[in-house]
Amino acid sequence: MNPTLEQLSEHFGRLTTGTASAVVQVADPALKGYHLDVTVAPSLVVEAAGVADRAGFALDAVTGVDWLAQNEMEVVYDYFHPESPLRVVVRTRIPRAEPELPTIAGVFAGANWHERETHDFFGIRFTGHPNLKPFLLPEDATFHPLLKDYKP
């Protein structure tokens, strides 16, 4: 029932958009805190979530990292497995100018809040999100505080 690391890397490795396929790296949990580091194209995050869901993973967190120098934003999906000691990180990069990404709230219901938070903090729009309202920030906030070029 519980997936092994090999099976998982194979499942994630099969993800492809036709032009770009997922890059799967096995990490040392003693140094990194996770076992598998998967980098996918932005259009593949939902499928990656599907792979994680079928393998019985639970959503840990969704968050962003603003790479100002590269003019990109990274969105990181953390998954943990409730029944076996496995952690997977799925990451993707989107352009800073057009931060848009499909939502995974349809796969993991818990992503709803995490994505709203990420929207608040980074201004990343999750297309297809059921309820992308201001969340932690005041409802009239027009800024995204975790952007590196944000000045309070």
Partner: peptide, 8 residues
């Protein structure tokens, strides 16, 4: 339900 929401 806990798994889908990441409840721990």
């Amino acid at each position: 339900l806990c798994r889908r929401y990441g409840a721990t």
